[in-house]
Amino acid sequence: MAYALQQLINGVALGMIYGLIAVGYTMVYGIIGMINFAHGDIFMVGAFISLISFVLISMGGWTAGPGAILLVLLVSMAITALYGWSVERVAYRPLRGSFRLAPLISAIGMSIVLQNYVQVAQGARVKPIEAIITGNLEIWHGNGFAVSISTMQAVIVVVTLAVLAIFTWLVTRTALGRAMRACEQDRKMAGLLGIDTDRTISITFVIGAALASVAGTMYLLRYGVIDFYIGFLAGVKAFTAAVLGGIGSLPGAVLGGLLIGLIETFWSAYFSVEYKDVATFAILVITLIFMPTGLLGRAEVEKV
């Protein structure tokens, strides 16, 4: 029981990271209907920028405290957002309104570019970082087994929830959010009504990248090591999460992320670590067989 509770906490912390990345997938999918395959690598870039920032800070002799983490988060968000914007501008915007598979291939190309660019620029070896947030909060104790939530996990959950809250406010309560939703429904009509659709799409990529960079920072803090290849698997998992939740649905992305995190953690804890990805994907396939548009996705009714 205690073990299960511990796994639940671990799973939620991991699921939050997936959820943050998944939001980026689902937003881009919602607005231009493409799988932004490079999004996982944007997450990786975010993690690297955080890493570099942390190293800079520690070289500057500033002891890492909440202020430092906040600063790193902001720097990483800004620069990663610039990456997200550039990727859209270079690889996707010229293909707007074109053949459906063209942006997908372009995105796969961009994913290869980002991965190898970081590998060339920062080296292929894994980058370790000292634990920045340490400490445990014991929340339950008994039968010789203690359930504890590490401060790190608490930070992940709190930061993620805060970021998601700000983000939800942004897309539901502001003019920008309204423009985004309008573009989602009907881009051509939104354009006719005076919404700058190119700009709205750019902002979508910027927001998605910023959220991915938060996920990257959290990943770095949680695991302490990153390399140029982390984007692929995290990206695939997050995309799986987005699809599981119903692609295009923002709450669905977070829910899907949580589910994937929980499945992975519980499967590793009770069955085998090796097959955790198989379990994740198998559950995705099974879900889609019975709910072809995911858990919270709008049922696509094709009018005959």
Binding site: Y29, I35, L104, V236, F239, T240, V243, I247, E274, Y275, D277, V278, F281, A282, L284, V285, L288, I289, P292, T293, G294, E300
Partner: peptide
């Protein structure tokens, strides 16, 4: 069989997942 009802990108992710499942099984 399982992907018959799926369309577009749902199909894409399931085929991707299938490829990864096969690879992970071969690996383990």
């Amino acid at each position: 069989f399982p992907v018959l009802r799926l369309r577009g990108d749902y199909l894409a992710i399931v085929t991707l997942a299938f490829g990864e499942i096969i690879r992970v099984v071969l690996l383990n």
